[in-house]
Structure formats: C-alpha cells, structure tokens
C-alpha cells in the first residue's frame, strides 16, 4: 500500500464517519462541526485526486462559506440552537432502503472496469475548458445563481404581511 492510498483510506474513512456523525448527531451545532470536517476531508481527497482547484473551491465554498452560512442560520433561529432532533423511532423501511442502496452502489463500484489514470491537468487547462467548451453550462449556472439570489432575498426578507400575521397569531 503506497502512501497515497494509505492517506486516502484514512481520510476517506474519516470523511465517511464524520458524515454519519453529522446525520445522527443530536445537537445541531455538533452536526455543523461534523459537516465542516466532512467537507474538509473531501477537499483533501480532491487534492489527492490531483484536482487542486476543486480542492480549494471545496475548502472555500463548503468548508468555509456553507458551514458558516449554516451556523448563521442556526443563530438566526436563536431559540432552536440547542434543539434536539426528535428521537423518532426508526422504522424498518428507511433503514432497509438506505442499506440496499449502499449495497447496490458498492456492488456497482466493484464492477467498474480498470481504467488507467489520465494525464494531469493544470488550472489553466481547466479554466479554458470551463470558459470555452463548457461556457454554456457556466452561463446557465450564472442564470440559476441570479434567480436563486433574487428568490432567496425574496424569501428571507421580513415582509410586513408575515410579521402582521405573526402578531395576530400572538
């Protein structure tokens, strides 16, 4: 086992465990800490996969921005910061479905043919590909982001009608 594979196994296991912890944690703040670890672990895997740009993007966007954003959302919903996930009894079906899904996917992974690693790419190649060949997708992403921005602002603003409704509700 070479060092890269070893690192991958360690980081991958950590990533998986932190994801599992994030989903099962009782306190939502803990969840956010675990999910931050999960994002950072994935970023490391991206570096190992010779995608440094993606790794940095993952660190900046997910481990940084998204985690902080989640934290802020929890802080805004102040009274719920220590809200515990209601411990509902897990029925058999969801567990079974998720387990089966995981098994199917792992089985699919085992069937994957042995491809050879391609040549490594620099960020310049990536950016050329992104802006020229796949420019349409990038443009589409921009449009989606723009509409999401306006939609998000619309949803999150404190409307007069909603505050009135809250007052009348008591």
């Amino acid at each position: 086992m070479n060092p890269e594979t070893f690192a991958f196994v360690v980081v991958g296991a950590g990533t998986f465990v932190s994801a599992a912890l994030a989903i099962t944690a009782q306190e939502i703040v803990h969840t956010i800490i675990y999910i931050g670890a999960f994002f950072a672990g994935l970023a490391t895997i991206y570096f190992l996969l010779q995608a440094p740009f993606l790794g940095l993007l993952q660190l900046a966007v997910y481990a940084g921005a998204v985690t902080i954003l989640l934290m802020f959302a929890v802080m805004v919903l102040r009274k719920r910061i220590f809200a515990r996930e209601a411990r509902t009894a897990l029925s058999a079906l969801p567990v079974l479905v998720a387990l089966l899904l995981g098994l199917v996917l792992v089985d699919l992974a085992l069937r994957a043919p042995a491809y050879l690693p391609g040549p490594a790419y620099g960020v310049d190649t990536l950016s050329q590909n992104l802006f020229l060949v796949n420019g349409g997708w990038l443009l589409l992403l921009g449009l989606v982001m723009l509409s999401a921005l306006s939609g998000g602002v619309y949803l999150a603003r404190e409307t007069r009608s909603s505050s009135v409704a809250r007052e009348t509700r008591g």
Binding site: L93, V97, L101, V104
Partner: peptide, 9 residues
Amino acid sequence: ALWLVTGLL
C-alpha cells in the same frame, strides 16, 4: 422522498 427512493431502488 422515501417512496421516491424506494421506487427508484
């Protein structure tokens, strides 16, 4: 979502 995933599975 559960039914969706179950059907897909």
